[in-house]
Design a protein around this nucleic acid. Structure first.
Lengths: 152, 152
DNA sequence: TCAATATAGTTAACTTGTTAACTTCATGGG
DNA sequence: CCCATGAAGTTAACAAGTTAACTATATTGA
């Protein structure tokens, strides 16, 4: 119940319980718990893992594309690519025609890293889906995508 | 379609498109866009705003309670309370019986700050609900809460 | 052609996220 | 009573989020 409703006045204010941003945050925390453990063992952060996975799905990308697909801002990505380069998981080369751009590629070592951790990642995802139910999962993804598509 | 399905082999891997953590992240980004503009004008961060709103709903709390309700970790909250104290929005006093705890209270200035920005905050929330639809909004909140309740 | 403007990426400065170590106070059992 | 253990906060160190300024290259139009 809403603590501030004891005076009989219906509170219009959105108590933090019903706030969508906070609900999204909490839900994400719950989902990320097991994934974080897995990634901590593997020695990468959640964001580094996202970048590697996006790169693994594509042969070569420039930072702007990577940022878009892994949901990171460019300044963050600059630092992450720096770290991943030091770990030997990505290479960078100049763009053939546009001197402003870079071509980022995942190295064989990076692909091996993904391969050796993907099974566990998928086990975690499968366990989540089995707990929530396939139908609810799809419904949830649809709603989230719709939210993402809204132009506010 | 999935780029890696061209060989006819059904990919089991969860392309980042269908990843729940990323969908949650993207959805949150969309929702937060207008809120961030509002808060930037007001001169507080999203997290500072969350803390103030939680404090506004309760007369006095200790940091552990605040952290739980505003979905922050204690080390972050320590710094945020420091900042809010400097802004004059919160006060701290020792707990009457337990020497380890603190009592954090929102100041009148903090309440005025909330009051002068709550209307705009609610306009934004209302616009969101009108775009998505009340039914879908409730459905989404239910699903997110269920996700939060899962023990993985 | 060349100056104005736009794009890609980096750097900087500040705030927060995240984990671990640390300090102080409480509490329960010997 | 005293020590071991636990709980509440803080501090530290590093990674990432966020906005703005900046560099270098491209592109456009007069």
């Amino acid at each position: 119940m809403d603590e501030q409703e004891s005076d009989g006045v219906k509170r219009v204010s959105i108590s933090t319980e019903k706030s969508l941003p906070i609900a999204l945050l909490r839900a994400r925390e719950s989902v990320m718990g097991p994934i974080r453990s897995m990634l901590a063992n593997a020695g990468v952060t959640e964001q580094q893992w996202r970048v590697l996975r996006v790169l693994d799905e594509n042969t070569s990308m420039d930072p702007t594309e990577i940022a878009e697909r892994s949901c990171l801002l460019l300044p963050s990505l600059t630092r992450i690519l720096q770290t991943l380069g030091e770990k030997g998981y990505v290479d960078r080369s100049p763009h053939p025609t546009d001197g402003r751009r870079l071509r980022i590629t995942i190295t064989p070592s990076g692909r091996r890293f993904i391969a050796s951790n993907m099974a566990e990642s998928e086990r975690i995802a499968a366990r989540l889906e089995s707990h929530l139910g396939k139908d609810k999962m799809e419904l949830l993804l649809d709603l989230l995508n719709e939210l993402d598509g809204l132009r506010l």
